[in-house]
Amino acid sequence: MLNALEVVTTVVVGVMVGVEFGVAFVMTPILNALPEDSGQLGHAHGGRMLGAVMPFWYVGSLVLVGVWAVAGRHHDGTGLVVTSGALLILSVVMSLLLLVPINNRNKAWTPENRPADWKQQLNRWGRFHYVRVAVIIAAFTLLVAALA
């Protein structure tokens, strides 16, 4: 049973990392290359769509890691799992304090109501997102190492 939990947790966190990596290094550059209105509308739509899903994915990943840490507390690699959980907590805190406030503004913007500094706000979100991606990649790496 623990083996199944380890695999499911690693896959769930790994897919989340893949999505966030894709947002940072594929979707954002594509949207930024579109003409102003199209790019900004794409960012807003992405903010609404992923903003609705990612909270459950982050919290669900954290819960799975927590269950793994408790269920496997007497096994090798538990320290790696606990550290991974701490990094996922950091990613949630970063999200709530740094990324969500910008995303909540962005998802309501249209070409008619966006603020003059909308590009700067999206760039700030992008910089925070790069850091968050690095944090969740580290968390995922620790989970993979714990399996070995």
Results as ranks from 00 to 15, higher is better:
residue 1 M to H: 12
residue 3 N to A: 13
residue 3 N to V: 11
residue 5 L to M: 12
residue 6 E to D: 14
residue 7 V to G: 07
residue 11 V to L: 15
residue 12 V to N: 05
residue 14 G to C: 03
residue 16 M to P: 01
residue 19 V to F: 10
residue 19 V to I: 14
residue 19 V to C: 07
residue 19 V to D: 05
residue 20 E to I: 08
residue 23 V to F: 11
residue 24 A to H: 07
residue 24 A to Y: 05
residue 25 F to A: 11
residue 26 V to E: 05
residue 28 T to V: 15
residue 28 T to C: 05
residue 28 T to F: 10
residue 29 P to F: 04
residue 30 I to T: 13
residue 31 L to K: 09
residue 32 N to Q: 15
residue 33 A to R: 11
residue 34 L to R: 11
residue 35 P to I: 07
residue 37 D to N: 12
residue 37 D to V: 06
residue 39 G to P: 01
residue 40 Q to D: 15
residue 40 Q to Y: 11
residue 42 G to W: 01
residue 42 G to H: 05
residue 43 H to A: 09
residue 44 A to T: 04
residue 44 A to H: 04
residue 45 H to E: 12
residue 46 G to C: 03
residue 46 G to T: 03
residue 46 G to A: 12
residue 47 G to Y: 02
residue 50 L to P: 02
residue 50 L to A: 13
residue 52 A to Q: 11
residue 55 P to N: 09
residue 55 P to H: 02
residue 56 F to C: 10
residue 62 L to K: 03
residue 65 V to T: 09
residue 66 G to M: 05
residue 68 W to F: 08
residue 69 A to R: 00
residue 70 V to G: 07
residue 70 V to K: 08
residue 70 V to D: 10
residue 70 V to F: 13
residue 72 G to Q: 08
residue 72 G to M: 03
residue 74 H to N: 12
residue 76 D to F: 10
residue 78 T to C: 09
residue 79 G to E: 04
residue 79 G to K: 03
residue 79 G to Q: 04
residue 79 G to I: 01
residue 80 L to R: 10
residue 81 V to D: 00
residue 82 V to H: 03
residue 83 T to H: 06
residue 83 T to R: 10
residue 83 T to N: 08
residue 85 G to E: 00
residue 86 A to S: 10
residue 86 A to Q: 07
residue 88 L to R: 02
residue 88 L to E: 03
residue 89 I to V: 15
residue 91 S to K: 00
residue 92 V to E: 04
residue 93 V to R: 10
residue 94 M to D: 11
residue 94 M to T: 07
residue 95 S to K: 05
residue 95 S to W: 10
residue 97 L to P: 06
residue 98 L to P: 02
residue 98 L to V: 13
residue 99 L to W: 02
residue 99 L to S: 11
residue 100 V to R: 07
residue 100 V to P: 00
residue 101 P to W: 06
residue 103 N to E: 14
residue 103 N to S: 13
residue 105 R to K: 15
residue 107 K to Y: 03
residue 108 A to S: 14
residue 108 A to M: 14
residue 109 W to P: 01
residue 110 T to C: 04
residue 111 P to A: 04
residue 111 P to T: 06
residue 113 N to L: 08
residue 113 N to Q: 10
residue 115 P to I: 08
residue 115 P to K: 04
residue 115 P to E: 05
residue 117 D to W: 06
residue 119 K to D: 11
residue 119 K to S: 09
residue 119 K to C: 00
residue 121 Q to V: 07
residue 124 R to Q: 15
residue 125 W to S: 01
residue 128 F to A: 12
residue 133 V to H: 03
residue 133 V to T: 06
residue 134 A to S: 13
residue 134 A to T: 12
residue 134 A to Q: 11
residue 135 V to D: 01
residue 135 V to R: 00
residue 138 A to T: 02
residue 141 T to V: 13
residue 142 L to Q: 03
residue 143 L to Y: 01
residue 144 V to A: 15
residue 144 V to L: 15
residue 145 A to I: 13
residue 145 A to R: 15
residue 145 A to E: 13
